[in-house]
Amino acid sequence: MRKLLVPVAGVLALSLLLSACDVQVTPEAARVDGGAISASTLTGSIRSIADDAGYRCEVRAGSQGQIPIEGTGGSTYASSFAADVLTQLIEYRALHEEVARLGLHEGAFARQVAAAQLPQALNPASTSGCTTTGSQVLADFGSPYRGLIEQFEVDQLAVLAHLAGVSLTRAGIDAYESSHKSSATLSCTSVIAVASASAAAAARARIEAGASFASVARTTSTDPSASSGGSLGCVFASQFTSPLSSVVASLPVGQVSQPVAFGSGYLLFLVTSRPLAPATQVASAIVSTQQSRLTTLIATVTSQAHVTVDPAFGTWTHSSTGWTVTPPTGPPDALLPNPTAVTPVAAAVTPA
């Protein structure tokens, strides 16, 4: 039996089919704790994703081509794709309800942090083969769907900050900075990477003799930063891989580190300054400490929500991977002018 397909023309075309068969039509694709996800929201989201070439590339790469987008009919979308999008919208709504339940504040500052984070989250994986950027993917989404994912990003960040014990407001971040100065301070760092301990010692000796760290980095370092004098920019020390994070965090400003064994080579570090990080960057660092809890959190709030799904779009079912919308395997009997059309072939055959 052919799977139900969601037409490009939107739910209107599906609604016309249902009306012709004397079936009551609902403008809602699903309800989550009493809040509605309209059929037009679902259709608009499907269209926004399908029309965004960069995001389509990411979907195909991430699923290794296993998530079909187009249906088998002309100008249609696969019902499995529609079900995946509806599952996503249900998760969005469930998390938003949790934010409201917790009474979390989502003001201009939270949206500023989300605006900085979202393009990074949408950047394709380096192995995807997709040439787009997260900023381009976001810009190419239709405005209603773009608004939905921007709100979802704000909701995620607000909840993650809450889990870290911090309010995602400017006042909340300022208070955190006052009591956690070391965690809110950046390390403007440069590095020299060489193949051996003796090469590291020789490079350090040149610097102690008066050569600048940048000039030695340009001529001896094998790190990609060599062309910029070894500069890695200003980052939190905690962003370095252990044990490098502790080396950078404890290194006095202006002092070259002792050679540090790392991988198959050796590194020299120089911290040139330690400015206080911008509030949005501090907020991003705070929520990143809770990032590993996000998938479980969304699964939990979704499982606790009261969800109903219009049968035209599927059923809300639980599996080993959690709650999801399972697409219909075909139109229900009531949608067919002739119910006997779904009679199994074997039962319809009369023996000679």
Rank of each mutant, 00 (worst) to 15 (best):
V235A: 12
V271Q: 00
L335P: 00
L160N: 02
T127W: 13
M1F: 12
L118I: 10
V99L: 08
Y176E: 07
G254V: 03
G254A: 00
G107I: 10
S135T: 14
H180I: 07
P252Q: 00
L251M: 00
E208D: 09
S257N: 02
S225T: 10
V85Q: 01
Q304I: 03
L14Y: 04
S19D: 09
D51Q: 13
L138V: 02
R60Y: 11
R218S: 05
T326W: 01
T300W: 04
Q120P: 03
L118C: 08
T127I: 10
R170I: 13
C188D: 11
E177Q: 15
Q117E: 15
E208L: 00
Y55V: 08
T26W: 04
E106I: 11
V32I: 10
D52G: 09
V349I: 15
P68A: 12
T43I: 01
D155L: 05
L268A: 00
E98H: 15
L148V: 15
L168I: 01
Q117T: 14
S319G: 15
S303M: 06
C130Y: 05
A211F: 07
Q151W: 09
R56V: 15
Q281S: 12
E58G: 08
T127C: 07
T169C: 10
L163R: 11
F269R: 00
A312S: 11
E28I: 13
Q291I: 12
A125D: 13
L14H: 04
E91Q: 14
E70M: 10
F240C: 05
S288C: 08
L294A: 09
Q304R: 15
S212V: 00
S143T: 15
G54S: 07
V8Q: 11
A115D: 13
S221M: 04
R47G: 05
K3T: 15
L5F: 00
A20R: 12
Y77A: 03
Y55D: 12
L17S: 12
